[in-house]
Amino acid sequence: MTLTREAPPVVTKPPGPPKRRPRDGWANAIMVAPATVLYVVMLIVPVALALYLSLTDWDGFSANPAFVGAANYVDLLDDPELRRAALVTLLVAVAGTAGLNLLGLGFAVLVNGASRANTFFRIVLFYPHVLSALVVGFLWSAILGTNGAVNNLVTRWGGEVLPFLSDPTWATITMIAVLVWAGFGVNVVLYLAGLQAVPHSLVEAARIDGATRWQVFRNVTLPALGPSVTVNIVLSLVTLLKTYDLVVSLTAGGPAGQTQTVAYLILWNSFHDARLGFGSAQSVLLMLVTGALAFVVTKLRRRGELAVHQ
């Protein structure tokens, strides 16, 4: 969320030759080591472990898991549950990212500028982010469930029950909508930050040249927001690809397992079905896909930005 400029220069050469002292090397090591060690032990080792476990048939507790080679990965390929979950996850990630960013950018433009009212709007748009996804899911299922607040009202007025959570298509849309409801406030705040960095003089100049608001937005503001857009899209994608908590509390994966995401399936397989090896293979797959998508989006956007700047 920091990339409102070009990627920050991470390494700056101190101007002028610094006086090298032998103690500096040690000091550097002391300052870097704790974070690095902990990072390796609790993040890199687990990733390696997941790789290893994905090659076994372990149930999670018996003494000697058997090495099964790529069998889990072969199973992955024609596992209908995973295929469905992958589809749901991609749909959530792509549609959710679109929703988060369109609303985020749109409302950022609408509430840009310092005023009491704008401050209030920002608070209201942002507040669901304070709530955990779990709470958000329980809350919306109490509102949209078959016996929930909305359907009680609808049936009282003689209408048919609206299957927000009981029809697969509706439930998927409901889930994406709730994700967007809960999250777009963050994108608003991030885009607002980006908007502050748009050179005011450029906007003024365009106005004086007689450009309409839309033209100014399209030709001045949006290009200047380029890096913000990249960061927002990557963040949204990475977050949505691991959607889990909301599934648990909003739909519990139902109806008919049609809203299970990959993250949900991983934990279900690993623990409920005691197929930890298989679950690990799914984890590895999810990690690869997340990394690849983030990479591709960053690359594409960067190319796009370069094109804009030329």
Partner: peptide, 13 residues
């Protein structure tokens, strides 16, 4: 590390 989903890590962790 920013691209590794935390939920996925919890099993090996």
């Amino acid at each position: 590390g920013t691209f590794i989903p935390g939920q996925v890590l919890v099993i090996p962790v």
